[in-house]
Design a protein around this nucleic acid. Structure first.
Lengths: 240, 240
DNA sequence: GGGACACTTCGACGTTCGCCGAAGTGTCGC
DNA sequence: GCGACACTTCGGCGAACGTCGAAGTGTCCC
């Protein structure tokens, strides 16, 4: 009989990691990083598996606490359970090895490029656009990284001037650095990152591309980003 | 043939999670969160597996990039690859379900209590002591959480007065919040958290308990923590 | 030089898991 | 009320994985 010190009370790391240690379940979680709710059938199609397979995987992810579900008639909607879960998926994604592009698939390459340009990372902006916004805010003194990441007084005023509504003080950090796994540089997350992203959608600055989590700035958005943050059009044009 | 949108270019989340989705490999990684290097035999004993099993698991963890290895004679030492890996394990541990204590095992309960009181969390202090230090620094205006976690000017001066050497500006965040999985409240991580922990060891304020990652303050440490941070003795006494 | 120690390799074994199709249930819309 | 749709349940199948012991290799110390 083994004497297993390792299995005393503590976090069951293996149980949590096992939830994500499967290509289909991982694909579901990455898809849900767009912040929206998907139906079981949508996720099955996205991952290329049978509906029965999708049901079984979703049951495990919900039971394990990573997803939350909601029934509407004959549809089963699921979403990531909470921001902490999204942050975990983001962290894992930033450290995970990259899967190479399948050779010769132009649609797939275009999708990857669109994701790299601009996407939602659960509830904030990511991709080259998200990183550019973060760097511009830093240059303009709205964010300060020197003694930890903080929103400066200028930053608070700037958000108020934009009409960005921050939620009342919560347990959630106001600003958080999120390592962008396509750009390999940080973009802004946390409550401020989420509020800025919501504002960008609400103001019609950005719009979704297709059904994925890629987004693109609109003409009004390009103008606003140029005026408010001095971003050049390179971050704002559709790629070729 | 399936049409798997999900398997286009992107992070291979499942491959990374699979590295940790096993009780033995998870136990290795949690043990290595003490920040030290362990030999293969020590890890095998800790996890209660045969040496051959340990070798095979370590090979996978090294190949997967989570561990780094070093040979010294007939000993194979391994450690966590870098702070980013440690942070990932910490994040997973804080969200993982808790494994209940085995019934009636007094040694195991004592080990859990010791870990909850004070331990190293890779390179910074965790447990009730780590959380208390963080809360006291916040009360005294050395840390500010309101617009993102930042070390204040008072905090920088305080560290200088203590003789805590901060590394030159690096890519690593100066301060980072780490959710303590025993206390369920945040403790201080990042470069400042690491420097404070190193100072506590160097100054003889804390000492390791046995071979695990539990630590305990010394008499000198208790006095220093009382004088410098106003911590009461409840955080500093060995449990009963 | 030889014995002990730390670790590795590999084949065998048992278990677990992902997948699917078929049959079923619950919901909607005509 | 019935057909279509979304989803679920379950048994079967094949693959993958963790474990170990035995045999082996490399290192140390007497």
């Amino acid at each position: 009989m083994k004497n297993r010190d390792a299995h005393t009370e503590g976090p069951d790391l293996a149980a949590l990691a096992a939830l994500l240690a499967d290509g289909t379940r991982a694909a579901f979680c990455l898809a849900l990083l767009d912040g929206r709710a998907w139906t079981a059938t949508e996720l099955a199609r996205h991952a290329g598996v049978a509906a029965s397979t999708a049901t079984e995987h979703l049951n495990r992810l919900v039971a394990g606490g990573l997803l939350a579900e909601e029934r509407q008639g004959r549809h089963r909607y699921v979403r990531l359970a909470d921001p902490a879960t999204a942050e975990l998926i983001e962290n894992l994604a930033s450290l995970a090895p990259r899967r190479p592009a399948p050779p010769g698939s132009l649609p797939a390459v275009n999708r990857s490029r669109a994701l790299a340009r601009a996407r939602t990372c659960y509830d904030h902006l990511a991709g080259a656009l998200g990183v550019a916004i973060t760097e511009s805010m830093t240059r303009r003194g709205l964010l300060d990284w020197e003694h930890g990441l903080t929103l400066t007084a200028d930053g608070t005023a700037w958000l108020a001037e934009l009409g960005v509504a921050l939620p009342p003080t919560t347990r959630r950090p106001a600003v958080r650095s999120c390592l962008d796994w396509t750009e390999r540089r940080p973009h802004l997350a946390g409550a401020v990152g989420a509020a800025l992203c919501a504002h960008a959608f609400d103001s019609g600055w950005i719009t979704r591309i297709g059904t994925g989590r890629a987004v693109a700035p609109t003409a009004a958005g390009r103008q606003a980003l140029r005026e408010r943050l001095g971003l050049s059009d390179e971050f704002c044009t559709p790629g070729s």
